[in-house]
């Protein structure tokens, strides 16, 4: 191992000082020179819109549904009361497509009622928790995963997972080929600024806009590469609307 490749070695410290020294020389700043970086930053121009669709004038839940579907996610809206039956139906359909022995991964912390009807649709369909953690190979053999989300973004049709309760660690929504995600109507943000402000950067975040895709062959978009090839979104609307 070369000396400077070992963190904490004298060589590594030399590289650090050399790079920082060149940066300071290039920008004409002496080390420790007086400057108010925070004030400069606060004064930067931000003339852009906080939302391209004002929630006061637009149905942003409908906008989210439309834009998520634009990227070939399967999107359905159901009332909160009808959610458990809808989850059971989607899982049953997928289980039938997956053949005998189909099982689904379920993260800890999912609202208890959500899976209450699953057994009705397809007797024998199995749900597996992630405690102790399922191995990557096990996840590869499951029929799909059911989760909630942290929030959604209407403008871009994006679902955000912060991998908290009801969402599972990152591998859980990555390795399975089918992802059923529930978005509550009150989780939809109009646009990026409000969404980002509602996230904790200390947690890993995954922003998902449609199923995995590629445009690497002649710039033709093809859905379905390494991530889940089917993204099924259930939007739970307020009961009074239904």
């Amino acid at each position: 191992m070369s000396d400077w490749a070992r963190p904490g070695s004298p060589g590594a410290a030399v590289s650090r000082e050399r790079v920082l020294g060149r940066v300071r020389a290039a920008i004409g700043r002496a080390q420790g020179a007086e400057r108010d970086v925070a004030a400069e930053y606060a004064a930067l121009p931000r003339g852009y819109l906080r939302a391209h669709h004002d929630p006061a004038e637009h149905d942003i839940v409908a906008l989210f549904a439309e834009r998520a579907a634009d990227y070939r996610a399967v999107v359905e809206s159901v009332t909160t009361a009808a959610l458990p039956a809808a989850i059971a139906r989607v899982i049953a359909d997928r289980a039938r497509a997956g053949g005998t022995g189909a099982w689904f991964a379920v993260p800890a912390g999912l609202p208890p009622g959500w899976l209450s009807r699953v057994a009705d649709g397809t007797p024998g369909v199995r749900l597996a928790g992630d405690d102790p953690p399922l191995s990557a190979l096990e996840l590869d053999s499951c029929a799909g995963v059911v989760t909630g989300c942290a929030l959604a973004i209407a403008e871009t049709g994006t679902i955000v997972l912060d991998h908290g309760p009801g969402q599972g660690r990152r591998a859980l929504t990555l390795v399975p080929d089918f992802h059923l995600v529930v978005v509550r109507h009150d989780q939809v943000a109009a646009d990026l600024p409000d969404a980002l402000a509602g996230l904790d950067p200390a947690l890993p975040q995954t922003l998902i806009s449609g199923p995995s895709a590629t445009s690497d062959i002649e710039l033709v978009r093809v859905e379905g590469v390494h991530g889940p090839r089917t993204l099924h979104v259930l939007i739970a609307t307020a009961d009074c609307q239904g």
């Binding site: 834009r67 634009d70 403008e155 991998h163 990152r170 950067p201 975040q205 995954t206 922003l207 998902i208």
Partner: peptide
Amino acid sequence: LALLPRSSTAERMNPYISTWTGVRPGDG
């Protein structure tokens, strides 16, 4: 995130964005 996907793949948002901060016990 408003500028890059639209300029790059011409999408409102690219399918996946991952953010992480250091290491997260039990995840990744």
